[in-house]
Amino acid sequence: MEPPPGAAENSKLRHVEKDVLIPQIMRDRAKELCSDKVQAFTKCCKETGFLMVVKCREENTALKDCLVGHYADPSFYEECKAEYLKQREEYRATGIKKKRQKITSNV
């Protein structure tokens, strides 16, 4: 069975897709997966104000470790790439851009 016409063209990623759009999906998904650490850091910052740099080091380190762990995982990148390609395919088929849900942080 042959791939549909233009399939090779559709699987290529532009520079902006590789360096901007897929990493944005990675950041959003990593924040969701590390939400407990995001909340702990946010709570610490609210409670300590200007001293957050000193007093919230532990929470900040835990958050960074969680996020970087996801960013460095090749399988996580491939999942996010597949998600992006699916969104791109849907957009090309329908012309309707799917709105990205933003995770708001109170930091």
Results as ranks from 00 to 15, higher is better:
M1R: 05
P3W: 04
P3F: 01
P3G: 06
P4W: 07
P5K: 11
G6Q: 13
G6M: 14
A7G: 12
A7T: 09
A8H: 07
E9S: 15
N10L: 15
S11L: 14
S11T: 14
S11Q: 10
L13C: 13
L13I: 12
R14F: 11
R14H: 09
H15K: 12
E17K: 00
E17A: 06
K18M: 10
K18L: 12
K18C: 10
D19T: 04
D19V: 00
D19L: 07
D19W: 04
V20E: 04
I22A: 03
P23M: 03
Q24S: 05
Q24E: 06
I25H: 05
M26S: 09
M26G: 05
R27N: 08
A30T: 06
E32A: 02
S35M: 06
S35F: 05
D36V: 09
K37T: 07
K37R: 06
V38S: 15
Q39C: 14
F41C: 05
F41W: 01
F41I: 01
F41G: 01
T42D: 14
T42G: 10
C44T: 03
C45F: 03
K46T: 05
K46H: 07
K46A: 10
E47D: 15
G49E: 13
F50Y: 06
L51S: 13
C56Q: 01
C56H: 00
E59H: 07
E59F: 00
N60Q: 09
N60F: 05
T61L: 14
T61H: 10
T61Q: 09
T61I: 10
A62E: 03
A62F: 02
K64D: 02
D65S: 04
D65V: 01
V68N: 06
G69E: 04
H70K: 14
H70P: 12
Y71S: 11
A72V: 13
P74I: 02
P74W: 08
P74Y: 04
P74F: 09
S75Q: 03
F76L: 02
F76W: 06
Y77F: 14
Y77C: 07
E78H: 06
E79W: 01
C80D: 01
C80T: 02
K81C: 11
K81M: 06
A82K: 10
A82W: 00
Y84F: 15
L85C: 04
K86L: 10
K86W: 09
Q87M: 15
Q87T: 13
R92P: 07
A93D: 11
A93C: 06
A93L: 11
T94I: 02
T94P: 10
G95C: 04
I96K: 14
K97S: 15
K98Y: 12
K98Q: 15
K98P: 14
K99H: 13
R100G: 11
Q101S: 10
I103T: 08
I103F: 02
I103A: 04
T104E: 11
T104L: 12
T104N: 09
S105Q: 08
N106G: 13
N106P: 05
